[in-house]
Lab assay of single mutants.
Amino acid sequence: ATVGSICDLNLKIPEINSSDMSAHVTSPSGRVTEAEIVPMGKNSHCVRFVPQEMGVHTVSVKYRGQHVTGSPFQFTVG
């Protein structure tokens, strides 16, 4: 992922509605921003955001307030 470019995290989660999901990204400096959740068809969801700084980011994806399997996810920008 690169700073200022759209970053997509694709998840396969069976039998949940994306409208019941939420996602937030925490940057290396601790800034928390909301991420967009895009339905991608049956059981597939895309978490979309634009990182604003380099370094390790943490993406928390929740369904009805509970982390989904594997969340929070970490990835490096830059």
Rank of each mutant, 00 (worst) to 15 (best):
V50Q: 04
R31S: 12
Y63H: 15
M40L: 05
S44R: 13
S44L: 02
V32T: 12
V38W: 08
S60D: 14
R64K: 11
T58Y: 14
S5D: 10
F49D: 03
V68Q: 08
F73C: 01
G41Q: 12
V47A: 04
H45Y: 06
E53I: 10
G41H: 05
N17G: 06
S18H: 06
C7I: 09
E53Y: 03
H45P: 15
F73Q: 02
P72V: 05
K42Y: 02
S71T: 07
Y63A: 15
Q74E: 06
T58Q: 14
A23D: 00
S5T: 10
I13R: 00
V3W: 03
K12I: 10
V61G: 00
R64Q: 14
G70L: 08
H24W: 11
H45F: 07
H24G: 10
S44P: 06
N43K: 08
F73A: 01
R48F: 00
H45W: 00
S5R: 07
P14K: 04
H24L: 09
D20Y: 07
Q74K: 14
L11F: 13
T76S: 12
F75T: 15
S60R: 08
F49N: 06
C46G: 09
C7Y: 13
V25F: 01
E53C: 13
F73W: 13
H24C: 11
R31A: 13
Y63W: 09
T58G: 12
M54L: 12
E15V: 10
M54Q: 10
E15F: 14
S60Q: 08
S22P: 12
V56P: 10
T76Y: 07
H45D: 04
E53S: 11
I6P: 08
G55T: 00
L9S: 06
E15M: 08
P39E: 13
G70A: 11
V25P: 02
Q52V: 09
K12C: 09
V32P: 07
T33Q: 12
P14W: 01
S60H: 09
V47E: 01
V32M: 11
V3T: 03
K42W: 01
V50R: 07
F73Y: 13
V77A: 12
T69Q: 05
C7D: 00
E34N: 08
K42L: 06
I37F: 13
V47M: 02
T2S: 06
P51Q: 03
V56T: 07
G65N: 09
I16K: 06
S5K: 12
H67P: 08
V3F: 04
Q74R: 13
H57F: 14
Y63E: 13
A1N: 15
P39F: 04
M40N: 14
K12N: 13
R31Q: 12
P51W: 04
N43E: 14
M40W: 03
V25Q: 06
M40D: 15
E53R: 10
V50S: 02
A1G: 15
H67Q: 06
H24A: 09
R48L: 00
V50E: 02
V61D: 01
F49W: 14
T76E: 14
M54W: 15
V59M: 00
Q52L: 13
R31N: 10
T69W: 01
E53W: 05
R64Y: 10
I16A: 10
A23K: 06
V25L: 12
I6A: 08
T33N: 08
M54V: 15
V77Y: 01
G4N: 08
S44E: 15
G4K: 03
F49M: 05
R48A: 02
G55H: 09
G55V: 00
N43T: 11
G78S: 06
P39A: 10
T69P: 14
V68W: 06
Q74T: 15
S60W: 05
C46A: 07
V32D: 10
V50L: 09
V68P: 04
V25N: 14
N43Y: 07
K62H: 11
E34Q: 12
P39I: 08
P14I: 06
A23Q: 04
E53H: 07
G78L: 01
S18I: 01
E53M: 13
V50N: 03
V50M: 07
V47S: 00
E53F: 08
K42N: 07
Q66N: 12
E34F: 06
F49S: 09
C7H: 01
S18W: 03
I13V: 04
V50I: 10
T69M: 06
G55M: 02
V50T: 08
A1L: 01
V47R: 00
S44H: 14
S18F: 05
G4L: 01
I16G: 10
V25S: 13
G78Y: 04
K42C: 05
V47D: 00
Q66D: 12
I6W: 09
F49P: 02
F49I: 04
V59Q: 01
T33V: 10
A23I: 01
S71R: 03
K42R: 07
R64D: 14
H67Y: 08
G41N: 07
C46W: 00
N17M: 07
P72C: 00
S29A: 02
H45G: 09
V68Y: 07
Q74C: 00
K12A: 06
E15Q: 06
E34P: 09
V25W: 06
T69S: 12
V38I: 10
V56W: 05
G65M: 09
V32I: 14
T58E: 13
H67A: 12
L11S: 15
S18R: 05
V50P: 03
E53K: 10
S5C: 01
C46H: 06
E15I: 13
M54I: 15
R48I: 00
R64F: 12
S18A: 06
Q66A: 14
N17I: 03
K62R: 11
Q52T: 09
N43C: 05
V3D: 02
R64V: 11
K42F: 06
M54G: 13
F75R: 15
V47H: 00
G30L: 07
T2P: 02
H57D: 02
G70Q: 14
T69K: 11
P51F: 15
S44M: 07
I13F: 01
K12V: 12
H67C: 06
V59Y: 00
P72D: 01
V38A: 12
G70Y: 05
F49K: 01
G78P: 05
F75L: 15
S60T: 09
S27Y: 05
C46I: 07
T33Y: 14
F73K: 04
H24T: 11
K12G: 01
S5F: 05
P51G: 12
C7Q: 01
R64P: 04
K62V: 13
H24F: 11
G78M: 03
E15A: 09
Q52F: 11
S5Q: 13
P39D: 14
V38K: 15
P51I: 08
G41E: 14
Q66T: 12
V61M: 03
T2M: 06
N43R: 04
V50Y: 04
G65P: 02
T76N: 13
V68L: 02
G30A: 14
